[in-house]
């Protein structure tokens, strides 16, 4: 850990001004925003993030931490805590996949500290990324190579990777946000923006050190999740090596709207196996308008994993991904029909 300066941003405009050099969360950016600190401080202690200035956004909790359900959808302030959202009765009833993906993440202590905004920006768990004594890591040190491609990659991504980086996006909640087609509000030095959540994270290209499309100084202020029938019939399946307090080795967020036995609409988000929060569009298309049988679910799982590339130890994720999607689809099917109509 290195010495750094610390300042509290009293309000949004100050935050944006102080944060001009946040550099999209790159590890070498001289300025970093601080929310719950569970990712940032962790990486600072590991000497991976070495900011000179830390700008504490906690005062923004005052105006940007509320949970506001409406007929149109659910608005969540970016500084709401994971635990708070996971326990909210409307979220649990009308957006179960959101509540479950938060509840199954991390530990009670971390969920009490961590914010939604920080959550979607959590960094990969690639052990080579998290330990600067490894020289080769393009994400930490652009152009240095990737130690994981031929190294220990049991929990690395199989979807959306290329040889420059095979790290997986480790979070759970973002997977649910992908399935429910969430949107985000941003405020930055150049003003406010509204984006589909799906465009927040960048795809793998030759620049794995750039993870998101956030501009320097931009603060996530809110998430919006449209109210849908499929959101009510939604589920998060998280497969992991132990029963709690562990990241996924595969996960699926499924939101389903049925018309009798026929799938009217389905949304599938994938986690634990993809470079970024992932959406399985082709599997959704395959399922729509057809009966949801075991065979259809399996075929959809297969389709979702098309193009997946294993690197040795993580080869199993291609089969596991398929099975996880199947399981999530069948669990969603078994849920009671929702009250909300499309």
């Amino acid at each position: 850990m290195r010495p750094f300066s610390y300042a509290r941003a009293p309000d949004l405009s100050q935050a944006v001004r102080l944060g001009q050099h946040t550099g999209q969360g790159q590890t070498d950016a001289p300025v970093q925003f601080l929310a719950g600190g569970t990712t940032l401080y962790d990486l600072m202690k590991l000497d991976v993030m070495v900011p000179e200035h830390v700008i504490d956004l906690t005062p923004l909790r005052g105006g940007h931490a509320s949970i506001t359900p409406s007929a149109d959808g659910l608005r969540l302030g970016a500084f709401a805590r994971m635990a708070q959202v996971a326990a909210h009765p409307v979220v649990r009833a009308d957006y179960p996949v959101l509540a479950e993906s938060l509840q199954l993440a991390a530990s009670a202590q971390i969920r009490n500290m961590a914010t939604l905004g920080g959550n979607v920006l959590q960094r990969t768990r690639c052990t080579y990324f998290r330990d600067p004594s490894w020289a080769a890591c393009n994400k930490r040190n652009p152009g240095s190579g990737c130690a994981a491609v031929d190294g220990f990659n049991r929990n690395h991504a199989v979807l959306g990777t290329n040889a420059s980086c095979i790290a997986q996006y480790p979070g759970d909640w973002a997977v649910a946000l992908m399935a429910l087609e969430a949107e985000i509000d941003l405020v930055g030095p150049l003003g406010a923006r509204h984006l589909p959540f799906a465009s927040l994270h960048r795809s793998a290209d030759k620049q794995p050190h750039l993870e998101t499309n956030l501009r320097p100084g931009e603060v996530i202020t809110a998430f919006f999740i449209p109210a849908t029938a499929y959101a009510q019939r939604s589920v998060y399946v998280k497969v992991r090596d132990r029963a709690s307090y562990e990241f996924a080795i595969a996960s699926a967020a499924v939101a389903l709207e049925m018309d009798g036995d026929i799938v009217r609409q389905v949304r599938i988000g994938l986690g634990g196996m993809a470079y970024r929060p992932w959406r399985a569009h082709n599997a959704e298309t395959m399922l729509t308008g057809k009966p949801l049988t075991d065979a259809a679910a399996e075929a959809a799982g297969q389709a979702a994993m098309e193009g997946a590339v294993g690197r040795g130890q993580n080869d199993y994720k291609i089969a596991l991904g398929r099975q996880t999607i199947m399981r999530a689809l069948m669990q969603a099917k078994a849920m009671p029909a929702p009250s909300r109509k499309a």
């Binding site: 052990t127 490894w134 130690a147 220990f152 132990r242 029963a243 307090y245 562990e246």
Partner: peptide, 25 residues
């Protein structure tokens, strides 16, 4: 404990990546 085959270095030298059961297990 995972050993990197090429460098003979230990990889998961922390209690997040070196797994032990939690209460729920």
């Amino acid at each position: 404990t995972e050993v990197d085959p090429a460098s003979a270095r230990l990889i998961n030298t922390n209690l997040a990546d070196y797994m032990v059961p939690v209460n729920a297990d």
